[in-house]
C-alpha cells in the first residue's frame, strides 16, 4: 500500500471509533459520588463556590441548578440552551444559567470542563451531582434531575 492509502485507512478507523464513542456518550449525564470539585480545592468548596469565586453569579434553584458552559463556536450550544430552558420552565425549583466558557477559563479549568456544551447539575446546596458533555435530550435532563 502507498503512504496515502495507509493514512486513509488510519483516518477511517479513527473516525469510526470516535463517532461510535461520541454517539454513545453525548448528552449522557454521569453522576459522581465523589462530588467532583476543582483539583486542589478544599473540601468545603462546591461547584457553586468555585463559580462564585471566579466571578460568576449563580442564582441557585431551590431544587437544582442547570449550569451550561457554552462558547461562540459551538453549534449544539444553542439547541442545549433551548432544552435546558424548557426544563427550567417545566420543573419547579430548577434554574438554568449559561456561562461563556471562553471568558471564564479559570472556572473552566477548575471544574474540568473540556468541551462545550457541558451541563452540570447542581443540587440545592450548589454541589455538582451530575454532568453531561454534548447536547442532552430533554428526557435525559429530566431523568438526571429525578436522581438529584
Amino acid at each position: 500500500m502507498t503512504t496515502g492509502q495507509w493514512v486513509l485507512l488510519v483516518c477511517v478507523l479513527l473516525v469510526v471509533g470516535f463517532a461510535m464513542y461520541r454517539v454513545a456518550t453525548d448528552g449522557q449525564f454521569r453522576g459522581n459520588r465523589r462530588r467532583r470539585v476543582g483539583a486542589g480545592t478544599t473540601s468545603g468548596e462546591t461547584a457553586a463556590t468555585v463559580l462564585t469565586s471566579a466571578g460568576v453569579a449563580v442564582p441557585l434553584g431551590e431544587r437544582a441548578t442547570l449550569v451550561q458552559f457554552s462558547s461562540a463556536f459551538c453549534a449544539p450550544c444553542r439547541a442545549t440552551r433551548r432544552v435546558l430552558g424548557e426544563v427550567a420552565e417545566l420543573v419547579p425549583g430548577v434554574t438554568h444559567v449559561e456561562i461563556d466558557a471562553e471568558h471564564h477559563l479559570d472556572a473552566v479549568r477548575s471544574l474540568r470542563v473540556l468541551r462545550t456544551p457541558t451541563t452540570l447539575i447542581l443540587d440545592a446546596e450548589g454541589r455538582e451531582v451530575s454532568r453531561a458533555s454534548g447536547q442532552p435530550q430533554r428526557d435525559q435532563v429530566l431523568v438526571a434531575l429525578d436522581r438529584t
Binding site: A54, V56, A57, E89, E98
Partner: peptide, 18 residues
C-alpha cells in the same frame, strides 16, 4: 494558551432562566 491566573473579564452569565 491562557495562563492559569489570567485577568478575568467581568463575569455575567450570558443568560439565566428565572
Amino acid at each position: 494558551l491562557a495562563s492559569p491566573h489570567s485577568p478575568q473579564i467581568p463575569a455575567t452569565p450570558t443568560r439565566s432562566t428565572r
